[in-house]
Simulated assay, not measured.
Amino acid sequence: MEIERKWMVKGWPEGLPLREEFAMRQGYISVRPTVRIREEALTGGRTDYILCFKSGGGLAREEIERSIDKELFDDLEYKIIAKPLIPKLRRSYTLPDGSVLEVNHVDEGQPTEFWYAEVEYPTVEAALAWQPESCGLGDYLKDEVTNQPGQSMGEYWVETRG
Score class of each variant (00 low, 15 high):
Met1Ala: 12
Glu2Ser: 04
Ile3Gln: 00
Glu4Ala: 08
Arg5Cys: 07
Met8Ala: 01
Trp12Gly: 07
Glu14His: 07
Gly15Lys: 06
Leu16Pro: 00
Phe22Leu: 07
Ala23Thr: 05
Gln26Gly: 02
Gly27Pro: 00
Pro33Gly: 13
Ile37Pro: 01
Ile37Val: 04
Arg38Trp: 05
Arg46Gln: 12
Tyr49Met: 08
Ile50Gln: 08
Ile50Cys: 06
Leu51Pro: 00
Cys52Asn: 08
Ser55Arg: 13
Gly58His: 05
Ala60Asp: 06
Arg66Lys: 12
Ser67Met: 12
Ser67Arg: 15
Asp69Trp: 05
Asp74Glu: 14
Asp74Asn: 04
Asp75Tyr: 14
Leu76Gly: 05
Glu77Thr: 11
Tyr78Ile: 13
Ile80Arg: 04
Ala82Gly: 13
Pro84Cys: 12
Leu85Ala: 05
Pro87Trp: 10
Lys88Phe: 02
Arg90Ile: 08
Arg91Asp: 01
Ser92Arg: 15
Thr94Val: 11
Thr94Gly: 07
Leu95Asn: 11
Leu95Ser: 11
Leu95His: 10
Pro96Thr: 06
Gly98Asn: 07
Gly98Val: 15
Ser99Ile: 07
Leu101Ser: 04
Glu102Asn: 10
Glu102Asp: 15
Val103Arg: 09
Asn104Met: 10
Asp107Tyr: 02
Asp107His: 00
Pro111Ile: 08
Pro111Ala: 11
Trp115Pro: 03
Glu125Trp: 11
Ala126Glu: 13
Ala127Glu: 13
Leu128Ala: 13
Gln131Val: 10
Pro132Lys: 15
Ser134Asn: 12
Asp139Phe: 14
Lys142Ala: 14
Glu144Tyr: 03
Val145Tyr: 09
Asn147Cys: 12
Gln151Met: 09
Trp157Ile: 05
